[in-house]
Design a binder for these strands. Structure first.
Lengths: 159, 159
DNA sequence: GTTCAGCTGGGCAATCTGCCCAGTAGAGGT
DNA sequence: ACCTCTACTGGGCAGATTGCCCAGCTGAAC
């Protein structure tokens, strides 16, 4: 069910040089082309690899400010709030969580001043009781997956 | 500096069907191949598109549990804590923030029980004073960028 | 009126893709 | 020991795509 060592190497390779084709990948990995093709098909159909979407930088789009907002929701309003937040482009992701808040969402904005507008739009909705926002200053570890892939590949190596 | 309407359509197209080539994209967009090529080169060199890394699902890798941890750091220990967290594969991203905590990190684990191990490893470090964790239950809005791209493309349309 | 950047439409050789095949090696079942 | 099945290899093929080049056109800025 998990991935093996070759899968791990393939994913890491794809992550490092996303534009290489199947043939080049097979050369790098030292296996036959058909093998790489089969592995990629399997990884995608298993859902390990969801896709190869372009990795867009919000900052380069004019949205250099990132923030995380913890939301408290009025009982029973969850679905409405979710639907509301989904309509706000500046909401990049939304999770429902345990703990102090009920939801956690990632926001971006054009500036700190613009963040106020975004937050107003986010919380300007019936079911949201309270919001507390944390502005991101630095991002020492950008979203990454390779170390985890390597870990997963290691774990299944000794099977 | 921002993106225009054609850039927006191109990014959306790439996001929807990441495996299409330049030629196919030019057909879909109704422009010449060279134009698409030039746009993609520009978007990448401008950093709007960082790359086309495979989008790997941690759940399919055997890590179905996601959590966000807010960390409080002892004064002056920031750099050490960052370096420490960077060595933990289960730490998928790390931000330094304003607000109640000093850092916010995204974690994954093999199970709720395993999450304890991960948290122990994360906080088992000198400079971390306190950690509060929120486990993700649902993810109604998975990390997305298309609405923002469309927004950015709209904004520059009326120039 | 001139200049220039961006787009078009086309051509070229080299490469890659999708698809096929037969043969081999290893794992698991009997 | 034997059989079967899956995965991998190594190869071939036609067709499509890529990277690269070019000349001409157009609209905007100077």
């Amino acid at each position: 069910m998990a991935i093996d060592h070759l899968d791990g190497r393939l994913i890491v390779l794809l992550a490092r040089e996303p534009r290489i084709g199947v043939l080049e990948a097979s050369r790098r990995l030292g296996v036959a082309r058909g093998t790489v093709q089969a592995r990629m098909d399997r990884l995608q159909s298993q859902g390990v690899i969801r896709g190869f979407g372009p990795d867009v930088d919000p900052a380069a789009l004019g949205y250099p400010v990132t923030a995380f907002a913890t939301l408290e929701i009025k009982q029973g309003q969850g679905a409405d709030v979710r639907a509301h937040l989904a309509t706000v482009p500046e909401v990049l992701e939304l999770h429902t969580t345990t703990g102090h808040g009920d939801m956690l969402c990632r926001l971006v904005a054009r500036s700190n001043a613009d963040l106020q507008r975004v937050i107003d739009r986010v919380v300007g909705f019936e079911g949201i009781v309270r919001a507390s926002t944390a502005i991101v200053m630095e991002n020492p570890v950008p979203l990454r997956i390779i170390p985890l892939v390597e870990q997963a590949a290691e774990d299944s190596r000794d099977s």
